[in-house]
Amino acid sequence: MRDKFVSLFAFSLAFAAIPAAAQEKLTVYTYDSFTSSWGPGPAIEKAFEAECGCELEFVAVADGVALLNRLKLEGAGTQADIVLGLDTNLTYEAKETGLFAPHGISLDKVDVPGGWDDDTFVPFDYGYFAFVYDSEAIDTPPASLKELVEGDPEEKIVIQDPRTSTPGLGLLLWVKAVYGDEAAQAWEKLSQRILTVTPGWSEAYGLFTNGEASMVLSYTTSPAYHEIAEDSDRYKAASFEEGHYLQVEVAAATVKGADNPLTPRFLEFMTGPGFQDVIPETNWMFPAGETSGPLNPVFDTLVQPAQTLEFSSEEVARNRQEWVNEWLGVMSR
């Protein structure tokens, strides 16, 4: 009897030891371009592991939308401590799931346009949507969204479908933010300039660099890639008077991850130089926290939006379906 008790005791001790060891590991779900060999993942993993003496594991899922779906599917049983790579259009919906926990860290180092104040989500980078044009095909790019909408229908643009793509949804919101109730009429006009609407960013950008269209919906940071990685200043972003729509990418702790002491440590680390230094030239977005030095000067030459356009996450969640349907109605005429 006593033997049995002892072995039971030893057994439960051994069992208890396993979760203790597992605490030395942090699992982060993110999108796949983040973990690719040219993405920020590898450098960040190295930097954080050196600092914490623990193991950081990235698990890649296709993109931000897939990331949230994945978490909804796995529910409370998820292996993720942190989900990294949602954007502000998804945060309301994400919070509603009840699967995320408050971050509990100081946001002093966080720096995004319009400021940041959220108890669950912590930003790690941001960017602005913009139309990127081929300077060999266009001399005077449109100076405003209005000029784009009313410009020469012979000069074609490529955009993405808001039903399947994040930039596509971004443009939809951009037009809505500028035109409000007259968005439908604007789309009707703009549709004459649209060569085609692709399912994702890759297809659209591929068509653009192949010369099919002289303008494409992308980010203000796209020209930085071409300048730094390819040493080419052929592709530039057009600056729009009305301002540019903002995309902020965020991370958050899951309810499961809230128990892991490494979770707040990583979120804290995320807002500092060990993480932020890598972002500009791997993720091609602006850092949302402290960097150890100034960015590559090329980033200073990029379009600086006169105004930041943004809907709250809740507004997007409530209206997305209706706005997409409005877009569909106009575009499928």
């Binding site: 479908d161 039903r163 399947t164 549709s191 649209i194 060569l195 085609t196 609407v197 692709t198 399912p199 297809e203 068509l207 877009w327 569909l328 575009m331 499928s332 005429r333």
Partner: peptide, 13 residues
Amino acid sequence: SFTIVLTLGGGPR
């Protein structure tokens, strides 16, 4: 068909 229809179809029509 998916990608072909969206990319070459010219729009959500």
